[in-house]
Design a protein around this nucleic acid. Structure first.
Length: 287
DNA sequence: CACTTGACCTGTCCGC
DNA sequence: TGCGGACAGGTCAAGT
């Protein structure tokens, strides 16, 4: 489930290999991936464009083009972006990873061919992911739609405290997952942030004291920075552009550890459902 | 307005 | 071996 650290890793690793490259050919293998634009219109709009930069907003990758359009990609749950070139090392092993098997495979929805014979494959087993070409006005709207980026100054202790005060009856996990309030957290990092902050995900935001919001703020930033430094979490399908897994899964404290002993206190980690998500927490470390 | 549910999708795993 | 069902969760539209 690519969240902020995964998309940021993809952005950083893809940037040096596709920046300055011209898109020579676009193959749309699953038209719904580029809907509502038709596959043909998508292809003709993209062909011949040169990549001038790579950005990210929340969980969306922004591929900036020379004509001031931006190609946006959302990987949702199972999306992958795999880059291949004869001089770019690929590591395989996973059936969806674009490693040992040939690409495109049965999960490939979109392929971009570059002028240096490099290829970018957008694979997505569940077809939730999408790619759209945005004009300047559309970009501005996309930027506005999301809350502050949690690793910038816009996301301050004070901002988080104000959020909690504004939504006192919502569980803190609901606030963390709301993209219009905070951009880029998903299920994994919401649970991990709550654990690091010593707070139950179900705890109502209105019950947080200033020390709690301060600790939660710090936990979110520390977890995201650490996850980026480890190139993200390959819980299932996520892969880096070279096919390798991220390394943060080894450092998860509660996510995916329901029924296992807490790594801090040995109490059994509880898994239940909260805001329709599998939610993991330690009954002893979190209050 | 605040909050919840359904829909979009399919691979994987489990019990029978 | 095959099959039904549960489960995974990001996001938006629709419902309460």
């Amino acid at each position: 489930m690519p969240e902020l650290p995964e998309v940021e890793t993809i952005r950083r690793e893809l940037k040096p290999v596709i920046i300055g490259r011209r898109i020579e050919r676009v193959k749309v293998l699953w038209p719904k991936t580029v809907a509502p634009t038709s596959a043909r219109r998508f292809q003709t709009s993209l062909r011949g464009q040169t990549v001038t930069g790579l950005g990210r907003r929340a969980k969306i990758l922004l591929i900036k083009l020379a004509n001031n359009l931006t190609l946006t990609i959302h990987l949702k749950m199972t999306g992958q972006l795999i880059y291949r070139h004869s001089e770019y090392q690929i590591v395989g092993g996973h059936p969806q990873a674009g490693g040992a098997d040939n690409l495109p495979n049965r999960f490939t929805r979109l392929v971009l061919d570059f002028d240096n014979r490099g290829q970018l494959f957008f694979n997505d087993a569940r077809k939730f992911g999408w790619s759209r070409l945005l004009t300047g006005a559309d970009q501005a709207e996309l930027i506005r739609h999301f809350g502050p980026e949690p690793l910038t100054r816009d996301f301050s202790q004070n901002y988080l405290a104000q959020l909690a005060a504004r939504y006192p009856r919502r569980p803190i996990k609901a606030l963390l997952l709301d993209q219009t309030l905070i951009a880029g957290l998903g299920n994994i990092y919401a649970d991990e942030s709550c654990f690091r902050a010593g707070l139950q995900p179900a705890r109502l935001a209105g019950s947080l004291k200033p020390a709690n919001t301060a600790r939660l703020h710090q936990a979110i930033q520390q977890i995201l920075k650490l996850a980026i430094s480890k190139k993200g979490t390959s819980a299932r399908d996520y892969r880096r552009p070279n096919g390798q897994q991220g390394n943060f899964a080894d450092l998860l404290q509660v996510y995916g550890r329901g029924g296992k002993p807490c790594l801090v206190c040995r109490q059994i980690v509880i898994k239940n459902r909260l805001v329709r998500r599998g939610t993991h927490s330690c009954p002893r470390c979190q209050h």
